[in-house]
């Protein structure tokens, strides 16, 4: 009996470890805040803020804060954008949006900035995603995850998702916002359901 237990434990170990061998596990931890930006017609896009862990901050600052003043000047931000952000275009900027269950590809972002606040690196950028409101409810899911799982992204405990407006009147819309696991999306060998922003909105009656 003991022998079979040992053999089965090998089988289990082999399955567990072999399946996942070639993949990265998270080395970077990101706290995220999303601002849902409305304009006069409806949703204009999402302003994403990523706050990186201390250690990744040190790596980026070590390489790109050239004058080591713990502040990122314009030229340093440009370098960071080029060398430590723009490659994410291949990964949808880790932002996977579905509008009424139809995927929306994030092809570009706007207004990128990088700052160091309280010894934490913060990336801030805007994803344009225009969805006009109607009297029918529209549903948008914004799941943020690194497909390779090199980075683990979680929503900030406070103000993880907030509404914002640009030249619009947010009271024109009825909105409902939730942050929860997106059970329809499974990543990393189906082991992880990413946490996602669920937005429902329509014109107020």
């Amino acid at each position: 009996m003991k022998n079979w237990f040992c053999i089965l434990s090998i089988g289990f170990l082999v399955v567990v470890f072999f399946k996942t061998e070639s993949f990265a596990h998270p080395h970077v931890f990101i706290n995220q805040k999303i601002k849902i930006v409305f304009d006069a017609k409806g949703v204009a896009g999402f302003r994403i803020q990523w706050e990186f862990d201390d250690m990744f901050t040190t790596m980026i600052a070590g390489d790109y804060d050239i004058n080591k003043n713990q502040l990122l000047e314009k030229n340093e931000v440009t370098t960071i954008k080029e060398k430590a952000f723009s490659y994410l275009a291949n990964s949808n900027y880790f932002t996977f949006i579905k509008i009424d269950n139809v995927p929306f590809n994030v092809k570009f972002v706007q207004h990128f900035s990088a700052t160091i606040i309280n010894k934490k690196l913060i990336y801030d950028f805007f994803i344009p995603c225009h969805v006009s409101a109607s009297f029918n409810t529209k549903r948008i899911i914004v799941a943020t995850y690194d497909p390779t799982y090199y980075s683990a992204i979680s929503f900030a405990e406070h103000h993880g998702a907030v509404l914002d407006e640009v030249k619009g009147d947010i009271e024109r819309f009825e909105t409902e916002v939730m942050i929860q696991e997106d059970k329809s999306t499974k990543i990393y060998f189906d082991m992880i359901c990413p946490t996602a922003l669920f937005l429902e909105f329509r014109l107020a009656k």
């Binding site: 490659y87 994410l88 291949n90 390779t148 090199y150 990543i187 990393y188 060998f189």
Partner: peptide, 16 residues
């Protein structure tokens, strides 16, 4: 499994 922030990778489909 390199750093996606600093390395260009062609295929970034979710691992499913």
């Amino acid at each position: 499994s390199g750093n996606p922030f600093t390395t260009q990778h062609a295929d970034k489909k979710p691992i499913v």
